[in-house]
């Protein structure tokens, strides 16, 4: 699998690069001069309090949110504003949502094969084979014929990961993938993500799961008020945060857990 992911990159530059990205919601400066690079194989975890702009940042990378200025490039290509070019670039970026967003009228199998068949033009028999492998890997192969509503939240989220992987993305974005899950289902999703990280997948993860950040992140980014306040390795960030905001944030987490 590792070689699969790595064969995708066409350049040696960063897979994701944001330069001077700004976005406003009215008076709220939700992304304030964001500069960020994610290199191939890197796992970047974005932490921060609610409303700090971390989800918006994640969603801006495949343009589910527009930006006011700055540039975002995916593997050297500037993110187009709309149309076919944007759709093609999105096909290279896997996205996992907080609320799973599996296609409710399609079976688990169809959810995973839709992209490969309709976007990549893969034959159905081949797409089925690829999908089955991915479903086995995330541990829900025995549910392939069911509808999303018949699965638990944790299972649905693992299918969502398989659906994104089926497109053989250059980078995977996770927008709070465990925030809508019951506590006992969080680990099955995190384990899948840790497995991906170990295989060398490039990942950008917005999460509140500090355990995942410690275990799998190469780099932690701490955001507050639309700005990147601090970047460090997980060890450094959790043991020795530099900024007052990060200290405050981590302090609150510890008292709550």
């Amino acid at each position: 699998m590792k070689s699969d992911h790595q064969a995708q990159a066409s350049s040696d530059g960063p897979i994701v690069e944001l330069r001077g990205v700004n976005k406003h919601y009215g008076a709220l400066h939700v992304l304030n001069d964001i500069n960020l690079q994610v290199t191939k194989g890197e796992v970047v975890v974005i932490l921060g309090p609610s409303g700090s702009g971390k989800s918006t940042l994640c969603r801006a990378i495949n343009r589910l949110e527009t930006i006011d200025d700055g540039t975002i490039t995916i593997d050297g290509k500037v993110l187009p504003e709309e149309g076919k070019a944007l759709a093609m670039l999105r096909a290279d970026v896997g996205m996992v949502f907080q609320s799973f967003n599996l296609f409710a009228h399609k079976t688990i199998m169809e959810n995973v094969t839709l992209g490969p068949i309709k976007v990549k033009g893969m034959k159905k028999s081949e797409a089925d084979k690829v999908a089955m492998k991915l479903l086995e890997r995330v541990g829900v192969a025995n549910q392939a014929g069911k509808l999303p509503a018949q699965l638990s939240g944790g299972q649905q989220q693992r299918v969502a990961i398989a659906r994104a992987l089926a497109m053989r993305p250059k980078v995977m974005l996770f927008d709070e993938p465990t925030s809508a899950l019951d506590p006992e289902m969080i680990n099955e999703v995190l384990d899948t993500m840790v497995g991906l990280a170990k295989e060398g997948m490039t990942m950008l993860v917005v999460t509140h799961e500090m355990g995942f950040a410690r275990k799998a992140a190469d780099r932690v980014i701490f955001m507050a008020d639309g700005q990147i306040v601090e970047q460090a390795t997980p060890d450094e960030f959790f043991t020795n945060p530099k900024s007052a905001r990060a200290k405050d944030f981590l302090g609150k987490l510890i008292t709550n857990h």
């Binding site: 589910l64 759709a87 996205m95 992209g115």
Partner: peptide
């Protein structure tokens, strides 16, 4: 979220409308 998921796997407007 259904439309967002459709766009996220690379479907443009018409196929997303038709399929999802």
């Amino acid at each position: 979220g259904q439309a967002e998921a459709a766009r996220a796997i690379g479907l443009s407007f018409l196929p997303a409308a038709q399929l999802v």
